[in-house]
Design a protein around this nucleic acid. Structure first.
Length: 568
RNA sequence: UGGGGAGUGGUGCAAUGGUAGCACAGCGGCCUUUGGAGCCGUUGAUCCUGGUUCGAGUCCGGGCUCCCCAGCCA
């Protein structure tokens, strides 16, 4: 199941080629550089798995570096949640936890150096003027009137910026490159802006903060990163990344861009995720419907399945969207192997077994994992009254429905063959109870006469059942590409109103008494479930991680379409 | 429109001038005390157009489509 095949992609090809050439003496050093302004999601997981995975594969190291250059949007809360999430995914950075803010001093010195070299200048233009002077995609920009200030004046002004002598937006430090460059990033990019904010780590020590372009490459250089992996949209920034490093003459990492992860029926942009949380479409960052790592963890998805998924998706430069079913496959694949089984009835329908003694209770032996004996067995009580799922009974069964219906015999898993004798309804015609008989010769679920039944049902004894809550999740969006629906509307327009369904009186077998938040089970024939932290002593709460592959639902759907097609 | 990227089955990833392959999805079957799992089989693709070559997904020319860049965001 865990195919240990050696991963290969265009980035690893580059690394291997460089190793053969002896570059960096074969040393490989990567980094994962999140900005602590939100929660990590599965899109970040691609970068995490890539960076840590490559380091591992080539006997290198991967640093964790928080890119905290903008105090207006970053918070400590996000730092700790990110650390937790990356650890949960299975990666560690030993003592190599860094912050871009650790380098503010060095960055300042280097900026002074560039000013002295005549390669950076203080600009007094307003933000609006800077934008106007920048030109457009098709027209070159024009140079700021402040571009040719003397080194002394620049030094003086820059120090003034640092010492808080100016207001925000009053001045910036810009690199002096080329206002006519076809690459807009090279039209004298801003290196420092004035921000009178308290930084989560440096406090009020600084009132100027480096921009991404100025901070990132230099931070990579300080950490002697050999391969700086980032997403495609930074491709246009690479010439600038290289320019700073070349002007400074310092260690020069190589930036390589790859396509970010997209998945159907969800959004993976921090901005929209924030919107979902803040506008209350979901219940927080760790809502099990969220594609955040904390949400997926709460839902019961394993880190292993996320890693396998990412590894199988591959790395390339083509902008792409992975089908959700692929993620689902790896979630089931891992859960199937590792979760013990249990019985849970989501929509209970009471069954009275008329030929079974009133007070008798038998313990039936169930394997905890039919495919893996090492999970052991457990005893499950059986009695005169049991619950089965309403979906497992049809008064008027359609073709190929193998489950219970009047007069039909099915197997109660690891218990008895059972035949439906009678259907009890209330005054509204709603089925409230089934009356059935059991064949005592079939105890354990096998017939001595060799007769077969097609259907096997799961069940829970009424007097022994635990009453729990189950939350079943569906896709958050009805549109496979929620962002495409934005034209003329908002991506929230395609939100699925039925993405959360709560079953408040689910009946589960008594062995589940005392389970802990995070514990996972397969409710046989239903799906995989994970105990939610909302659980209390009185009431357990389960999240459905994912349903089992349901071939009957598929058959029925097809039958329905067939019927519709014939009608029209 | 200037610049930078990318186009291979439904989806994603391979094939590095030499039989277009793998995974997911789909379809069919086997097996089954989960209509689960597993196993076997199978449908289906090189954006278009010229050229180079014994041979082109790969190299060259032309075109088309999609994505990124005009934050003192990252």
């Amino acid at each position: 199941m865990n195919d240990e095949k050696v991963l290969s992609d265009f980035i690893r090809d580059i690394i291997e080629r460089e190793m053969e050439e002896g570059k960096h003496d074969g040393r490989v050093q990567t980094r994962f550089p999140p900005e602590p302004n939100g929660y990590l999601h599965i899109g970040h997981a691609k970068s995490i798995v890539l960076n840590f995975g490559i380091a591992e594969q080539y006997d290198g190291k991967c640093n964790l570096r928080f890119d905290d250059t903008n105090p207006t949007r970053e918070e400590e809360e996000f730092v700790s949640s990110m650390i937790e999430d990356i650890h949960w995914l299975g990666y560690d950075w030993d003592d190599r936890l860094f912050f871009a803010s650790d380098y503010f001093g060095q960055l300042y010195e280097w900026a002074v150096q560039l000013i002295k070299d005549g390669k950076a200048y203080v600009d007094d233009l307003s933000p609006e003027e800077i934008r106007e002077y920048r030109g457009t995609l098709t027209e070159p920009g024009k140079e700021s009137p402040f571009r040719d200030r003397s080194v002394e004046e620049n030094l003086d002004l820059f120090q003034g910026m640092k010492e808080g002598e100016f207001m925000e937006e009053e001045r910036v430090l810009r690199a002096k490159i080329d206002m006519a460059s076809p690459n807009i990033n090279l039209r004298d990019p801003v290196m420092y802006r004035i921000l009178h904010e308290t930084h989560h780590r440096t406090g009020d020590e600084w009132c100027i903060y480096p921009t991404y372009d100025w901070a990132h490459g230099q931070s990579d250089s300080i950490e002697k990163i050999t391969h700086s992996l980032c997403t495609l949209e930074f491709k246009n920034n690479r010439p600038l990344y290289n320019w700073f490093l070349d002007q400074l003459g310092i260690f020069h990492p190589r930036q390589i861009e790859f396509a970010r992860l997209n998945i159907t029926y969800t959004v993976l942009s921090k901005r929209r995720l924030i919107q979902l949380v803040e506008e209350g479409y979901v219940n927080g960052w760790d809502d099990p419907r969220m594609p955040t790592l904390s949400g997926m963890r709460r839902r019961g998805i394993t880190p292993e399945s996320i890693r396998h998924f990412i590894e199988h998706v591959g790395v390339a430069k083509k902008q792409s969207t992975i089908q959700r079913s692929k993620l689902d496959h790896f979630i089931r694949d891992d859960l199937n192997a590792r979760t013990p089984r249990a019985n849970g009835v989501l929509r209970p329908l009471k069954v009275v077994i008329t030929n079974y003694p009133e007070d008798k209770v038998e313990m039936m032996e169930f394997p905890n994992h039919p495919g893996d004996e090492s999970f052991g067995t457990r005893d499950v009580p059986f009695s005169k009254e049991i619950y089965i799922d309403r979906d497992d009974f049809r008064e008027d069964p359609p073709k190929r429905f193998w489950r219970l219906s009047p007069g039909k015999e099915v197997r109660l898993r690891y218990a008895y063959f059972m035949t439906c004798q009678d259907v009890v309804k209330d005054e509204d015609g709603k089925i409230v109870e089934l009356r059935c008989t059991v064949d005592p010769e079939t105890r354990g679920g096998a017939a001595p006469d060799g007769r077969k039944v097609k259907g096997t049902l799961h069940w829970v004894s009424v007097p022994h059942a635990l009453d729990v809550e189950v939350r079943v999740y569906d896709r958050l969006f009805n549109d496979p590409f929620p962002l495409d629906a934005e034209e003329g509307g908002d991506f929230t327009d395609s939100l699925n109103p039925d993405s959360l369904q709560v079953y408040s009186h689910v009946k589960v077998e008594p062995s589940l008494q005392g389970v802990k938040a995070g514990d996972r089970y397969q409710f046989e024939r239903v799906g995989y479930f994970c105990v939610d932290p909302d659980s209390t002593e009185e009431k357990l709460v389960f999240n459905q991680t994912i349903a089992l592959y349901d071939s009957w639902a598929k058959i029925e759907k097809r039958q329905e379409q067939e019927r519709k097609r014939r009608k029209s």
